[in-house]
Structure formats: C-alpha cells, structure tokens
Design a binder for these strands. Structure first.
Lengths: 203, 203
DNA sequence: TCCGTAGTTGAACGATTGCTCACAAAAAAT
DNA sequence: ATTTTTTGTGAGCAATCGTTCAACTACGGA
C-alpha cells in the first residue's frame, strides 16, 4: 500500500558517502546533501530522521561496502598476501578517476568530537582493516614469506597506524613519491616485529 | 599613539590553538572563539581580519611553538636519539592533564578541503617533524644505535606516517595498550629500511 | 471509484553562522 | 585641555544552518 519509493537507497548512501568523505560531516550542509543525493529534505528526514542519521547510515554502508570490500580484495583473497598488503597501500594513493582522496574512517576519527556516537562505527571499520592485516600476515607466515616468529597482532596494529597515517599524508597533498616510499617502508618493516618475548616498559 | 592593547596575542593564539585542535575549524564558531579567547569580535576582526586569518595565525603559532618545541625536546636535543623518538611517540599518547588528544596538523590535513590555503602551513609542520626524525636517525646511526646503511630519508617518512597514524588512532579513542604497541612497532621497524639500493617499481 | 496509506515536494521556521559598525574608552599628540 | 588615534564593546546584520510540515501525488485494497 502507498506510493513507491522513487530513489535507490544504495545510490543515495553512495553519494552521501562521497560527499561526507570529501567535505566532512560539518562541512556538508543539507543543501549540499540535497544536491549530491537528489533527495529533498522531507524524504531524507522521513527515512533517516536527521543529518546524523544519514551520516551513520552512510558510515555503516562505507564499512560494509568499501572497507570490507577493499579488505577482502587486497588482504583476504590474494594468493600472495604480501603483494596484497602492498596493493592495499598503493590503491589508497593511486585512486584513479576518483576526484578526492582519503578515507571516511580516518576523517571521522579526526572529526569525532563533533560526532561522539560515530565512535563505534569507526572502531568497527578500523578493526576490519586490522583483522585483514592479521589474516594476510598469518598466511604470509604460513607461506614462509614472513618470519615464523612474527608478532602478527602487533604488526597488524603497526600496519593499521601506518595506513591511517598514509591517508593523512594523502589528504595533506604530499607528493606521490613520498607516499610511495611510505608504502615501501611499510613492506620493509614487516618482519621486524618478532618474538612475543615479553617486553617490559612504561611502568 | 592610541590606546594600549589589553590582551596578550600569545595567550589568545594559545587558546585558539586549543579550541581549533579540539573542535576543528568548522566546529569552532566565533561565539566559541569569543568565549575561549575572551576576545570580542571587533578586536578579533581588527587584528586577524577573519576567522580564516585567526586560524592561520593559530596554525603558524602551533608550528612555531608546539611542533618545533616538541621536535627540539624529543628529537634534536636528547643524547640518546632512539629514546627521544620513543618519547616523541609516547608523549602523543600520554598527554597528561590536557583534556583532549590529537594534533592540529593532523586534523587540519584531514579538514583541508575546507581550508585550501592551510596546505602550506600543514606542509611546514610535517616537514619539521620529518626533519627531526631524520636528524635523530642520523645521530643514532653515528652512535651505532642504528644500522650503518639505514635509509634515513625513507625511514623518516615512514616514522612521520606512523606518527600521524598514531594520532588518528588516539583521536579515534583506541585503547592505550594498542597505541603503545604502535610505538613499539615504530621502534622495532627502525633498522628495517636499509640500502638505498635502487628500487624499481610502479612504472 | 473512492478511500487509506506511503512517498514527494519545497516553502518556511527559529536558531545560529561569520561578520560589521557605531559608539565608548583610553592613551599619545597638540 | 583639546584633538587625534587606537582599541574595546556588543547589538545587530544578512545569510545559512538543520529541521518541520502542509499540500500534493501515486499506489493498493474495498
């Protein structure tokens, strides 16, 4: 019963994702959103309740589609796990035809004081990336491409930080040569984190 | 000639720095600024011309005082360069009494599409950090605390990315244990970047 | 066919935004 | 003492913000 919805929710969320990634939550006005998604405020508020609601739906969609998709393609599926890790990094630099670089997770983490309820979504996305690194590292260790005593957990956290840092530098507009050398450093650093030999420090 | 200025520019910029770091450029309204600095809009516009002008002055002051200060204390001056690098990282996690964590450079890089003219300031600050890392690494190599064939330039870029990534994760509110393991990973990865043996890749 | 329901539209709301400016206050110049 | 010059003050501006809502349109069931 009733009228049929004229717009596709996936397309609207994809547009919203792009807009929020580009401008941030505070930087994207509802007029911008209306223009980007084609949705009038009434439909928007009927469906998502508020700008916050739309943002959270877009963040969830980003985690579900973009993040998990990238993790699967680059970290879980490749036969060569180390090559996958490398392509995970380089694909954040060479974004191809996409106009603006960066990652909605990174941006939202930084903007989190304007969006306290978004913390959970950010944590989910970061955990998915970290888990992907851990999986690839475990497989690399099995294949003999990484030291047998590699500390997978610490290295995964290390790569997550490096990846987020790369996205900051991408966003800052640093030259591509610098960004690629960060990738090289990331690959070279794999293998330096060994031996869960108990390390005692900071009290 | 004329009346004496009743407020201290350094104090005002310090307050503005804190506010912008906490809320971001878009998230800090002029009413917030007025409350934080004690400056009425008239004086503010007389001195800085606009909200942008104040932001740029605050970013410059941040580079000049906070960034360069931290680089000097942790990276240039310590007799033990590696210990200095470690404390540079840990001091970003354990901020002490300061209420909110993070770095104005990181945040501004992410927010850069709202602030295109801030790119230069961000570049300056990042270059200062990278240069500090390079200095500390060079000295560590001289002291024999790092491999003689360490690629200082690439490692400095690597540490810069790691540091920015750490600040994103701090901002995301990840547990301190995770953050400290990133620091451990950073220290362990020093030494894995050797040999400027020409590396041919990505066309 | 006519009604009930779900969806669309866009004008308009009060609040807040960055910013201006007329006026008052204080110090130097005369 | 008066004028000139600089600074402080804060009410108020137009524009924009996120949001609401009444009128309208399309569909299914009676």
């Amino acid at each position: 019963m009733g009228r049929k919805q004229l717009w596709d929710q996936d397309e609207v969320l994809a547009s919203a994702m792009r807009l929020f990634r580009h401008r941030g939550y505070l930087g994207a006005s509802l007029r911008d959103i209306e223009e980007a998604t084609g949705l009038h405020p009434g439909s928007l508020y009927r469906t998502f309740g508020s700008k916050d609601g739309l943002f959270h739906a877009a963040l969830d969609a980003y985690n579900e589609r973009v993040v998990r998709g990238r993790v699967r393609v680059h970290l879980l599926e490749p036969a060569d796990p180390l090559a996958g890790i490398r392509s995970f990094f380089t694909s954040a630099i060479e974004t191809g035809p996409e106009p603006d670089p960066g990652c909605l997770l990174t941006n939202t983490a930084v903007e989190s004081f304007a969006l306290p309820q978004a913390a959970a979504g950010v944590h989910h996305g970061l955990a998915a990336i970290e888990g992907g690194f851990a999986d690839a590292l475990t497989r690399a260790r099995q294949h003999g491409d990484a030291p047998a005593d590699l500390d997978v957990g610490t290295t995964a956290a290390h790569l997550l930080a490096l990846y987020q840092g790369l996205l900051v530098l991408v966003r800052a507009g640093l030259p591509r040569t610098t960004l690629h050398s960060v990738t090289d450093g990331a690959m070279a650093s794999i293998g330096s984190l060994r031996a869960p030999r108990k390390q005692d420090d900071h009290e």
